[in-house]
Design a protein around this nucleic acid. Structure first.
Lengths: 340, 340
DNA sequence: TTGTATGCGTTATCAG
DNA sequence: CTGATAACGCATACAA
């Protein structure tokens, strides 16, 4: 910048004001400055600027991309929205463990992000405190905190009723009575809600929730396979499975296939999370489709609003997934039109 | 930091040295400093530090996540590797256009990233110059520049021979003579190579490359559908299709399905890019599987090496994809074991 | 073993 | 309409 000032024969103050349009400057000198910028190939130093003004125009993202592939789409939506609002995104992975979560936040903090989007681990309290101490705006994504106990913005999807709907469909439309669930990682908020939804769906339809097997299929394909093994080894194995997320679904279908089973024949399945290709490949999966795009867009909106007005009351946004009835649940081959 | 110094009754110099272990300090005072850090909840300001030392320990990522879903996995590999080396990742989207590419790099530059991983657009020269002027280390990913013309590190996969292999399989093993290609976005380097591979495969097997239809299916499902329409409307439509990437494959299978066609019946297909679920769902796609993980890991390695030694000669790493013979190409239902 | 002084590249304040 | 100067929070050369 001092180069520019020298070439344009003005002070750095004026250069700064030209760049930021922060006060009137004589058209002639403005031109001189712009020419000098061009000539020197000057590009502003965001680091120095950030240090001075105290804001980096940067948003931090902390979540695990490993256990939930659908987060990929969320990241894109987040990036797109942040960019369109003039913010840049910094990426960190929490691995869904409290330790890595804290480490990720420390990184974000040291980069002085203006706000954080976090998919909280099972024990996120320390993480919340870390951010609160520094007064860094925070919005939770995917996992909404247990109701209103914490004063934090959040956006997530409904889990309870949607999973109950999945179960109800299995029972009412297809007559299943022995239903099992392969649930995501233990402790995570969405897991709890989805299991609760599973039990609710059973109960409502006259089945005993306590008799229905639930296995945590964790995040790896191996864990899913093991969980499925245990379930199929039961004296009276289930005839239908509720699959708790994306990854579990793929691993389960793969393992069933090895055993010569293709839903709905031999085993019915319904899944949380949809796939863009679920409509075209067989088995055509019956799913609860999450509005992943909206999740990302709303998260950034909430965060920017909070940055602008730190004293807003906390808002919890819950989005509704859409039920995609296809064939893995045992539907007839005639296609049921998707909701959208 | 001055808070810490006051509490510990030392100078900020000492605090700095304690934090960075940059010189010997008396164990007693060190303890005092650490206690003070704890007490004040101090966290270092990376921005100020960066300004001072001239390095941000930050890597910039510029690519389009929209046109190539497989980039999601690359991002994860990149993030993982960068983190394990103590770097943080900043994400920007190029939308595969030169304009957005330059804008993305400007953002990265203003954040003073220590290096950039770029999936170059069709006309990346200006982008290269932008980085070179500021002497910011750069590594190209996915798209390796036309041979050795530019002095830039790059990591990508082989395209020519692998696509030729795909074509050969169609011709030799399954007897196809009318083969078409749905190619990715025009102008991109990988697209050129994949088309060249298509023509090479045809030629080698006694077919006329100039008679074989090639349509650019671009990045949207609509464009793919339109391209497929044109191809099927030909007087002598192809009996087999080479699908140029991930997205094109999904959109094509979906559109074929609407027409009642499920490969290999009615149309054989082979694809560039694999899917984790391709083994379990039908049609079971025959693909060239890219080593996406390695792509990300190697990109970061190359970049860090260049940051450490700016005067290294440029290296171009080409990874080999693996041929996954499954069923969409017309194979018998007996399963062919995947390579890995 | 520790502290003082300086500057990294900006922008805000205050003067001219 | 424009410029000199200080300060953002840190790391280092130099001094003690």
């Amino acid at each position: 910048m001092s180069d520019v000032a020298r070439v344009a024969k003005v002070s750095t103050t004026t250069v700064s004001h030209v760049i930021n349009k922060s006060r009137k400057v004589n058209p002639a000198t403005e031109k001189a400055v712009r020419d000098a910028i061009e000539a020197t190939g000057y590009a502003a130093d965001g680091i120095a600027r950030s240090l001075r003004i105290g804001s980096t125009h940067t948003l931090g993202l902390a979540m695990t991309a490993i256990s939930n592939p659908y987060f990929g789409d969320v990241v894109h939506a987040l990036e797109r929205t942040a960019t369109s609002e003039g913010y840049t995104l910094i990426l960190t992975d929490t691995h869904d463990t409290p330790e890595r979560e804290q480490r990720a936040l420390r990184v974000l903090l040291s980069h002085r992000v203006d706000g954080v989007v976090l998919a909280p681990s099972a024990v996120p309290e320390h993480a919340y405190a870390q951010l609160a101490k520094r007064k860094v705006p925070l919005v939770l994504i995917d996992r909404v905190p247990e109701d209103a106990q914490v004063n934090i913005d959040a956006v997530g999807v409904e889990n309870l009723e949607p999973v109950a709907t999945l179960v109800e469909h299995l029972v009412v439309t297809h007559g299943h009575t022995r239903i099992g669930m392969l649930a995501p990682k233990d402790g995570i908020f969405t897991t709890k809600e989805r299991i609760a939804g599973f039990r609710l769906g059973l109960e409502r339809n006259g089945l005993d929730p306590d008799a229905a097997p639930v296995e945590h299929a964790g995040e790896s394909a191996e864990q899913t396979t093991a969980a499925l093994d245990r379930m199929l080894a039961l004296p009276e194995p289930p005839t239908a499975l509720v699959l708790g997320n994306n990854l579990i679904t793929v691993a389960t279908i793969a393992e069933l296939r090895k055993r010569g089973i293709t839903p709905p024949r031999g085993m019915a399945t319904v899944s949380f999370d949809d796939f863009p290709w679920a409509d075209s490949f067989q088995p055509r999966l019956t799913t609860m489709s999450q509005p992943v795009e909206d999740l990302g867009v709303i998260a950034v909106q909430l965060l920017l609003e909070r940055i602008a007005s730190p004293d807003l009351e906390a808002r919890h946004v819950r989005l509704a997934p859409t039920f995609q009835v296809r064939e893995s649940c045992g539907c007839p081959p005639e296609r049921v039109a998707p909701d959208i």
